[in-house]
Amino acid sequence: MAYIKIDKEKCKGCLLCMTNCPKGLIIQDEEINIKGVRAVSFKNNSECTGCAFCALMCPDVCIEVYK
């Protein structure tokens, strides 16, 4: 049981977190954030293991992991 928090206003939409999530729990938003990019969201369906691969790959340190 774990989850992540994404700071959407800092997100630049590189999608490295999305491609590194082993469970595919991160998806790209349809709407844009204040930077004008499509940020990402966390699908909170309790499959998250808190491996932090997303946070390790995030170049803008937008992700906090809770475990």
Binding site: M1, K5, D7, S41, F42, N44, A52, E64, K67
Partner: peptide
Amino acid sequence: KTSSTNQTSKALRKVFSL
């Protein structure tokens, strides 16, 4: 300004942050 909320959040420990 974060995206997710979780009702059990108080029980979980922050393991990765700035």
